[in-house]
Each structure stands twice: as structure tokens, then as C-alpha cells.
């Protein structure tokens, strides 16, 4: 069965969809950030599964082993995780400010307070 080899990716896709759904559909500002997190983490898993090589090992040089998993995606994801944290921190900081200014972290309530805009 040819598509069996793709199964791994599809699980990740489902995870991404769940995360993305939270971002779009949820009105709670914290949950949105959580959703973004899940969305991004799933993308990371996806990248890492790209790097896996059958028969390869972790990319740390050991005498005698020639097959390693691809280190490049690992590096990218390291960077991307950091970026993710940075964004989360920033997002949460904004949520805190929003709560201070509006007394709520529900999107619809905030829009109500601001009128039409």
C-alpha cells in the first residue's frame, strides 16, 4: 500500500488542523495563543519527520557510523521553536495588557466595548 508511507504526515496534518481551528474559531485570547502553539508545534513535528532517514541515527558523529538523519531540519526547527516562544511571550504580554484595559479576554466582549470597530 503506497499511501501507508505517508501516514505519519497525515497525523501531523490533523494536528495542524486542530490548532488552526482553535486559532480561528475560539474567542478566548489565551486559547487562540494556545492554538497557535499547537499549530506551530505540529509544523515542527512535520519538519522533523522530513529529516528522518531509515537506518540513520541522531546526527552526532560517532566513529564507524555513516548514516545519520538529516541535521538541517533539526536546525531549522530549533530556530523555529525559539521564534515560537518569542511570539507566544509577546502574544501573552498583549493579552495581559488587553485584560488590564478591557477587563476581559473574550474577543466578542472586547469588540462590544469598542463599538463597531
Amino acid at each position: 500500500m503506497e499511501w501507508l508511507g505517508l501516514y505519519n504526515y497525515w497525523v501531523v496534518v490533523v494536528l495542524m488542523m486542530v490548532g488552526f481551528y482553535i486559532v480561528i474559531a475560539q474567542g478566548n485570547l489565551v486559547k487562540k495563543i494556545v492554538g497557535l502553539n499547537i499549530f506551530q508545534t505540529s509544523v515542527f513535528i512535520f519538519f522533523i519527520s522530513l529529516a528522518k532517514l531509515d537506518g540513520g541515527t541522531a546526527p552526532v558523529y560517532v566513529e564507524g557510523i555513516t548514516e545519520y538523519s538529516n541535521p538541517l531540519p533539526h536546525v531549522l526547527i530549533l530556530t523555529a521553536i525559539v521564534v515560537g516562544v518569542a511570539l507566544t511571550a509577546m502574544g501573552l504580554a498583549l493579552v495581559v495588557r488587553v485584560h488590564e484595559l478591557y477587563g476581559s479576554i473574550e474577543e466578542d466582549e472586547i469588540h462590544e466595548q469598542d463599538g463597531k470597530h
Partner: peptide, 13 residues
């Protein structure tokens, strides 16, 4: 999936 460095980071983060 052999990504130990990433795993360490993800866990820490």
C-alpha cells in the same frame, strides 16, 4: 525521530 537537540529544546520550552 532522531532529533535529540530539538527534543531537548521543545521540552525546555
Amino acid at each position: 525521530m532522531d532529533a535529540v537537540d530539538v527534543a531537548l529544546t521543545e521540552a525546555a520550552v
